[in-house]
């Protein structure tokens, strides 16, 4: 924080403290009204179920910080899950080498995005829209649209349930990822470069920063993390299918934007992203446990609906506040001759 300018600090802190407040209110509400929400068992469920989206959001944050976007992460999850299934079933690879190959493939796919975006200088939105379609299409083509891989090594499947010191494995992974991304974004020269590129790619280039390689890095990381998320997802659901991670890119972007990172690049903090992830995860789990919602059986839809609405509010809120405050300021002061 020491490196933020006062005005930036004020804005960022305002957004993030507001989000924290919303999160606390949400939490308190659900603890009071939702059935079995606050139990330790359920809370560890919240973490287990949100680990994949959380990881994707953490990786998405630096991408958005550079002013880019990666719409392909959900599809890449599907492709990696299918690839892992193919490797273990059709090629009879052991779990570890198969996982290693899957991670390498994720990195490669991220590198493909990065290559098109940095070396050919194509707009990230359209490139990743293309690979969004391409990756999912490859997954569907491999599985003929229907095949599901189920027979995995029990040791691998138990990862989805593993706890260390009573805390689910996913929480440990998420914490490690969050810490690494925090260091990357806020404590290293890489993060500084992401920010500079997000504000002005040309300005960064004229400052002697290696814009191409620094822009490529976040996309490589989203690829790697998408593969990791695919493995966790497969272990948790005990199956690998082409539709793994459908729509996850939206949730990840929502968490990042909700967490105060500007979609235009340059502005944003990783703790904010974490708060954004938590807000969505808690909502998704908790809303279905509110008795009325539970009875109607609409928890999933309502959670997504509220997430979409929350994103709109997060986007429009500061702007509305600004418009309203300037309007009231316009009305009050000195008499005018206009």
């Amino acid at each position: 924080m020491a490196s933020l300018s006062p005005s930036l600090k004020k804005n960022v802190l305002r957004h993030e403290s507001l989000l924290l407040l919303v999160l606390l209110l949400e939490f308190a509400f659900l603890c009071l009204y939702a059935r079995n929400f606050g139990t330790p068992d359920n809370l560890s469920n919240v973490v287990r179920h949100s680990a994949e989206i959380g990881l994707l959001a953490l990786a998405m944050m630096p991408v958005i910080l550079t002013g880019g976007i990666d719409l392909s992460v959900g599809s890449l999850m599907g492709l990696c899950a299918v690839l892992f299934g193919v490797l273990t079933h059709d090629y009879h690879l052991a779990t570890l080498p198969a996982a290693a190959v899957t991670l390498a493939a994720g990195l490669f796919a991220g590198g493909f995005n990065a290559f098109l975006i940095t070396a050919l200088r194509l707009p990230p939105l359209i490139v990743t829209l293309g690979t969004y379609s391409l990756f999912r299409g490859l997954a569907e083509a491999i599985t003929q649209g229907t095949k599901t891989y189920r027979a995995f090594d029990p040791a691998f499947l138990s990862l989805g349930e593993t706890r260390w010191f009573g805390v689910p494995l996913q929480a440990w992974i998420l914490t490690a990822a969050a810490a690494s991304f925090y260091l990357l974004v806020h404590r290293s020269t890489f993060g500084r470069s992401f920010r500079a590129i997000g504000f002005s790619p040309e300005g960064a280039r004229y400052a002697g920063l290696s814009v191409q390689s620094r822009t490529a890095l976040p996309y490589l990381l989203t690829g790697l993390v998408a593969a990791l998320a695919a493995l966790l997802f497969t272990a948790r659901l005990r199956q690998a299918r082409a539709d793994a991670g459908t729509g996850y890119e939206l949730c990840a972007i929502t968490a990042v934007v909700l967490g105060g990172t500007s979609i235009f690049g340059g502005v944003g903090t990783l703790p904010g992203t974490l708060a954004g992830i938590a807000a969505i995860a808690v909502l998704t789990n908790g809303i279905g446990r509110v008795p009325a919602v539970f009875k109607a059986g609409i928890g999933g839809e309502l959670a997504s609906l509220l997430t979409g609405a929350l994103l709109l509010v997060a986007l429009a809120g500061p702007e509305l506040a600004r418009v309203l405050s300037t309007r009231s300021a316009k009305i009050s002061p000195s008499p005018k001759t206009l």
């Binding site: 098109l116 490139v127 829209l129 293309g130 391409l134 990756f135 999912r136 490859l138 599985t143 649209g145």
Partner: peptide
């Protein structure tokens, strides 16, 4: 089953050509 993959590829080719 290749439809989606090919659609993605065509988008990429178009944008590469533009670039």
């Amino acid at each position: 089953y290749w439809e989606k993959a090919i659609q993605g590829l065509v988008i990429l080719l178009a944008v590469i050509a533009d670039g």
